[in-house]
């Protein structure tokens, strides 16, 4: 479980996040939605400690990220998998080496064990035959899937995904979303997903945090979202004219 309490983040005088409080529970997909520029990426990077916390705190199952010693922080990071907006695969390594990398770094397994685990993860994301390819030889959707395989290879307790399906077609997006949901349920991971994709919101939005102008405007599930009565949320969800008409 991850608890965000009164988190505030600004760049110079520009306040991006203001007094954010929310809870992300294990075994379910937690979505963070909001317009482009609303601070989703900043929130995610603060969650994993890539951006320093100024005010407020983030608590990982009773451990405060702010008060953590570097050793504890390193320990925590080994239990975190993250999917970046641009995949962030290592382009000097093959797909298999990419997935094996966290295992190389932090397990004492031998090469066969590591390769087996990596291959199993690649099979989990339905890319069993891509092992020998380089990231430059993959399509955008395949890169995302390899990145998911790399993130889950060391059996993380926490999975963070920054716009896992930006730039993908609707069908591939659904494949990625389903994958994230299945993995989350299968291993009881605490998953946080940033998105502004409505298909994802409806498909996997088990817990939704709506960011609006730097604060949490609304929280709920995908079932509540249509009758939230929240004006800002409605404007975001029913942005396209045809959806507004459908609603009527």
């Amino acid at each position: 479980m991850i608890e965000v309490s009164h988190l505030t983040k600004s760049f110079d005088s520009h306040v991006v996040l203001e007094d954010i409080s929310t809870v992300f529970r294990p075994g379910q997909v937690n979505l963070v939605i909001g317009q482009s520029g609303s601070g989703k990426t900043v929130l995610l990077k603060s969650l994993v400690g890539l951006l320093p916390i100024e005010q407020g705190d983030i608590i990982y199952s009773d451990q405060s990220l702010k008060g953590m010693t570097p050793v504890h922080r390193k320990d925590l990071r080994r239990r975190i998998g993250m999917l970046f907006q641009g995949s962030a695969l290592f382009d000097s390594m093959t797909v298999l080496e990419n997935v094996m990398f966290p295992l190389d770094m932090f397990t004492s397994w031998n090469r066969t064990e590591k390769a087996e685990r990596a291959q199993a993860c690649l099979e989990r994301v339905e890319l069993p035959s891509a092992a020998a390819l380089f990231p430059s030889e993959l399509s955008g959707g395949m890169k995302k899937r390899v990145a998911i395989a790399r993130a889950i290879a060391p059996n993380p307790d926490y999975l963070f995904c920054d716009e896992p399906n930006s730039g993908l077609d609707p069908l591939t997006s659904i494949v990625i979303d389903d994958l994230i949901r299945e993995i989350t349920h299968e291993y009881g991971i605490t998953t946080v997903v940033n998105t502004h994709d409505m298909n994802s919101v409806m498909g996997i939005g088990e817990h939704i945090t709506f960011l609006y102008r730097g604060h949490v405007e609304w929280t709920g599930t995908n079932r509540d979202i249509f009758h939230s009565g929240n004006e800002a949320l409605d404007q975001f969800i029913f942005a396209a004219p045809w959806t507004r008409q459908m609603k009527k």
Binding site: K45, V48, L50, K74, D75, L76, R77, R78, I80, M82, F84, Q85, G86, A88, L89, F90, D91, F101, P102, M105, F106
Partner: peptide, 17 residues
């Protein structure tokens, strides 16, 4: 530099490397 702007260095950080 390319690793930095394509977030590969962030990915290393996240892994605790």
């Amino acid at each position: 530099g390319t690793m930095r702007i394509t977030e590969q260095i962030d990915a290393l950080d996240i892994m605790g490397v």
